[in-house]
Nucleic acid binder design. Structure first.
Lengths: 337, 337
DNA sequence: TATTGTATTTGGTACGCTCCAAATCGGCCG
DNA sequence: CGGCCGATTTGGAGCGTACCAAATACAATA
């Protein structure tokens, strides 16, 4: 099978120089019409397609950005990925994807500048690796972190103010008249920083309400439906009494609702449930799930913007942003009448 | 800021030739220990990282594969993407992602060999574009199609036997004692081939059961929860009587269940619902959703295998595979007692 | 027609790395 | 100690494209 057609082949076919072909392709202003036609004819005839590799070599850029997130199938990240692909597209970039599965080793690989491969930069949503290590492993390539806020001010970051979000979610439960609250999702596994922030927000709201005796916070392995369901069963089996559940994310909340139903507890009559993320499932769950909306499109858009900024100006000053959020009250936290 | 460190810089630092540095990096067998150490020291000192672009240029390969699917946020595709990323990783490849949003124009771009960019090949799950056009637009680059079966035998394809799957799903509803069936999801929008296959399976099962008078099949714009919900409301508003709903995918089914609940119809007591895909949500829906399991990991794995095969042998004979599936009966189709 | 200035075209080099043939090294045998 | 041979190392030629300075073509002017 014939090898790839190159610029040079086209030049030979059209009896012109490589440069002229290049000029036509990149439609350089000063190209005579006759030249354009001759070259285009040759391109057509040979079925030539510019090969990105060659272009990249010259420019030193590939237009590719690496996106490293824990799990593409998890709705929050799936929605984030969707937004990121779209945002990258708008910016004329493409995404190379990596999945860390919340494994430290995989996150290390992702953070390691060794593994950038062809990408011009990295957008990384870390889970278990800590900031210092990310900082240590990053090369000189552009890096944008996604997710929780961080003490690190040397890196561009599109953050989530988990304390404020959790506080608002918990306060909503309290406002709806719930007072015996539990939280699902704590710091035992996963990103220690995230969960402690979410837990902090939870406790903060309880204290503001004068509930100094905090409800239990259950540990989960991952933030999945299974874990949410299991947590509820453990609480019930331990005879914990509660009328409100704050879940560290919507997936846990959906799992929790599923287990509550299995144990014949009615949501929201017996127990109110609220999550975080506002994934689409929540709108169609039964009952519909109250949650904290997080603007994933904004996150993706800003992440791409920050990356582009670094690409343009490697010495730009890092920004730390905080994503917009708001309460979305649905059936799962309706007041018991 | 200092530019990228190159192989040549390392060679200069270590006082050896570029070739030797290259040998050490690619750990060529015949390299003396002293050489290895000297070079590694220099690499360490300069913080050198091989730049993929250079390697690619020589090999003509980037190790990147493009994955084009409609929507990363849609659970079926999210799960497929997750599996694909993992499978690519196992094969030492990485994925560049594209999202077509079921738009013909975007699918054309994806299919167009122009847009392969740095990728060595393309794994494409088409939705609205037809086979002939894909065939016409593909260059010589490796291509693997995902999704429905096709008449095209000139392309590797990991197919879904939609007729058989829909037939099995519909038969399950009938087996559970339902007889007034409707189907949600038809050929008006989206991939004409897919839906007509799914519809064909539906009708086939009805005819086998002697129900020659087929139930209505509602058209949907996309295959989303919203569309599933709207379809149910339209059916009810049109006073259609039914005790079983076959949905072309799980998302439609989840939307349908949500609307049924809103209209005070009990699932499965009043109406049984079944979907296709076995997305994770279904297990935690209320009631849990019966569905047809489709092995997405197998699909992803085979797709990568086929792509690798084409990369190895460009003249290999195209294969058309059919993904394994099976019925997963859950609460939503339990028999009314 | 010679001249000048502008519009086009072109040759050649650089990009970072791999690979291969040729050169060099080092040890061993006679 | 010279000669050999296998083990190492090295120079240099690409890989496909962009860019730039230099060369050439063309048109208009004197």
């Amino acid at each position: 099978m014939g090898r790839q057609v190159t610029l040079e082949d086209v030049a030979a076919e059209a009896n012109v120089s490589k440069s002229s072909v290049s000029n036509v392709i990149r439609n350089h202003p000063n190209v005579r019409e006759s030249m354009r036609q001759r070259v285009n004819a040759a391109i057509e005839k040979l079925g030539y397609r510019p090969q990105a590799i060659g272009q990249n070599l010259v420019s030193g850029r590939t237009g590719l950005v690496s996106l490293a997130i824990p799990n593409f199938a998890q709705p929050y990240f799936a929605e984030l990925a969707r937004a990121a692909v779209a945002a990258a597209d708008d910016a004329g970039m493409r995404l190379i994807v990596q999945q860390t599965d919340n494994l430290l080793e995989r996150e290390r690989e992702a953070a390691d500048s060794w593994n950038l491969g062809a990408a011009d930069g990295l957008i990384f949503s870390p889970s278990v690796i800590d900031d210092e290590e990310i900082e240590a492993r990053r090369g000189r390539a552009p890096l944008v972190l996604l997710g929780e806020r961080s003490k690190l001010s040397s890196v561009d970051r599109v953050g989530i103010d988990s304390v404020a979000i959790s506080h608002a979610a918990t306060k909503h439960l309290l406002d709806q008249g719930r007072s015996r609250l539990v939280m699902i999702g704590d710091k035992t596994f996963g990103d220690p920083f995230v969960v402690s922030e979410r837990e902090a927000g939870f406790h903060l709201a309880l204290e503001e309400a004068g509930l100094h005796e905090a409800g239990p916070v259950t540990a989960v392995r991952d933030w999945t439906r299974e874990d949410g369901a299991r947590s509820i069963e453990e609480l019930i089996d331990a005879n914990v009494e509660f009328d409100g559940v704050f879940c560290a994310n919507d997936l846990l909340a959906l799992g929790a609702m599923s287990a509550l139903r299995r144990r014949n507890l009615k949501v929201p009559e017996d127990v109110a449930v609220i999550g975080i993320d506002d994934i689409e499932d929540g709108q169609f769950a039964s009952p519909t799930l109250s949650t904290m909306f997080i603007d994933k499109e904004w996150m993706a858009h800003e992440a791409i913007r920050l990356l582009a900024k670094q690409l343009t100006d490697p010495d730009s000053i890092p920004e730390q942003l905080s994503v917009p959020f708001r309460l979305v009250a649905r059936e799962s936290t309706a007041s018991p009448r």
